[in-house]
């Protein structure tokens, strides 16, 4: 009952392309689950289903008390509890970093403007960008934009954070600063599911690794499973040095 996220036998197809083929896993409070796997194995789709960006064809998904598979799901209330960060940042280009962050708290939680601004500065400090509050996204580096995107999600005080290859578009130097923010978050007790290609990071931070292959959870276990894979596919995947 302490699971924040629980997927049971989730099925999802795009047309005739079966993308999720009976996916089950659960993530407990304060846990960090790293989802790994080849490109096309259904990792992003799984995350998007958790956040109801995609509807599923079968199975159940429970997230922070919301029955995501239910046709009567209140999407907005689900999204107040779940933050998501994408590979491409998706900051709003017409708003400054601070305004990007203030938008949801003032629109959704109806906090006052000054409160929202305080909140924005608070989360910007947490991601190490306090001095960039007035900058527009295009004035920031990729790593900085991604940290603002993380801060924007944090400002809604989510119970669960989803990260979809958030460092894949960044060069190694900028990757480090984003990973550090995520590590701090994990330390702070945030429940997180992250799709990542950073094996070292997964090993270090994840309490659970989920290896997906051909739309199935092929192998799952603690970070140490990467050192002693049970299946040939995971051995291959880890060995390929991705």
């Amino acid at each position: 009952m302490s699971a924040v996220v629980k997927l049971s036998n989730v099925h999802k197809s795009f047309g005739t392309n079966k993308v999720l083929d009976g996916v089950s896993f659960e993530v407990g409070r304060g846990e960090v689950a790293a989802v790994i796997g080849q490109s096309g194995s259904g990792k992003s789709t799984a995350l998007r289903c958790i956040n109801a960006l995609e509807t599923i064809d079968g199975g159940t998904i429970d997230v922070c008390g919301h029955a995501v598979h239910d046709a009567k799901l209140d999407r907005r209330s689900l999204r107040r509890d779940v933050g998501i960060v994408f590979q491409s940042y998706n900051l709003f280009p017409h708003l400054t970093a601070e305004q990007n962050i203030m938008l949801a708290p003032s629109c959704v939680k109806k906090v006052s403007k000054s409160e929202a601004r305080d909140l924005a500065h608070d989360v910007l400090r947490r991601v190490g960008l306090a001095e960039k509050a007035g900058h527009f996204p295009e004035q920031l580096s990729g790593g900085q934009q991604q940290r603002v995107a993380i801060a924007r999600s944090l400002a809604m005080q989510p119970k669960l954070m989803l990260f979809d290859e958030v460092t894949s578009a960044l060069d190694p130097q900028l990757t480090g600063e984003v990973l550090k923010v995520m590590e701090d978050l994990a330390r702070g007790g945030m429940t997180m599911i992250l799709v990542t290609h950073e094996m070292a990071f997964a090993r270090k931070v994840a309490s659970q690794v989920v290896y997906m292959h051909k739309g199935k959870v092929w192998e799952t276990g603690p970070g140490s499973m990467l050192d002693s894979p049970k299946t040939a596919e995971l051995a291959d995947f880890v060995g390929s040095g991705l």
Binding site: N90, L91, V108
Partner: peptide, 28 residues
């Protein structure tokens, strides 16, 4: 489409998404 999704994921209502995120960009 990613801008529409980002707004949706922040729990904005369709109206807020349109007026605060999409229209300012579309109007330019």
């Amino acid at each position: 489409k990613t801008q529409w999704e980002a707004a949706e994921c922040l729990a904005l209502t369709p109206w807020q998404r349109m007026t605060r995120v999409i229209l300012p960009q579309a109007m330019r």
